[in-house]
Simulated scan of single mutants.
Amino acid sequence: MARETPAQLPLGTSRGIRVILEGGDLAAVEAAAVEMKLRFGARFAVTGRRLSPDRQALRISASLLANIDTAMDAEGARQWTPPESSAPAPGEGDGRTGGS
C-alpha cells in the first residue's frame, strides 16, 4: 500500500515559511499546533511529527503561508517600526515630556 504524504504548503514561494514547535510537554506542543491551525486555517499545515529518541520531547514541523497583513494583525503596527525611526530627530530635545 502506498504511503500517504503529509499535507504541505509551498515553501518555495516568498510567503511560505517553516514552523517548528518543540517541547518536552507533548500535550502542550500538540495544543500549540491545534491553536495555530485554528488561528491560520488553511494557511497552516502540519507536515511532520517526531519524538525524540528518549520519547521525552515532541517536534512538530509545519508550513505557514504568511504575509505582512497577517504579521500586522498578530503583532500590531508598533512592532514593525524600524528602531532608528523611534529616536527623536535632531533638535527635538531629549524626548522627555513636560517642562522646558
Rank of each mutant, 00 (worst) to 15 (best):
I68H: 09
G93A: 03
L51Q: 07
R55E: 11
A71L: 15
I68E: 05
T5V: 01
P10R: 03
G23A: 00
A87V: 07
P6E: 02
A27W: 00
A42F: 01
A33H: 00
R78F: 11
P90S: 07
D69Y: 12
T81L: 15
A28E: 12
L51A: 05
E35K: 14
D94L: 04
L21A: 04
A89Q: 15
T97M: 14
A62N: 03
E30A: 09
R15L: 05
R18S: 12
L65T: 02
S86K: 15
A2F: 15
G76W: 08
A66P: 00
Q8P: 04
V46W: 06
I20K: 09
S14F: 13
V34K: 11
L58K: 02
P10A: 09
G24N: 08
S63C: 15
R39T: 11
I68P: 07
I17T: 11
S63Q: 07
R15S: 14
P82S: 06
M72T: 13
G99P: 03
G16A: 08
A62H: 10
S52H: 03
G95N: 04
A57F: 02
G12I: 10
L26K: 09
L21G: 01
V29T: 01
L65I: 03
R15A: 14
R3C: 11
R43P: 00
A66N: 11
F40I: 01
R55A: 11
Q56T: 02
G48T: 05
T47P: 06
P88S: 08
G98Y: 02
F40H: 12
Q79L: 10
F44Y: 15
R96C: 04
V29Q: 03
P82C: 04
M36Q: 12
F40Y: 05
F40M: 03
L38H: 09
S14E: 15
M1S: 05
R59L: 15
L38V: 10
A45E: 04
T13V: 10
R43T: 01
K37Q: 15
R50L: 10
V46R: 13
Q56H: 02
Q79G: 03
A2L: 13
L64D: 10
P82A: 14
G16Y: 07
L9D: 03
A31I: 00
G23D: 02
R59F: 08
Q8I: 04
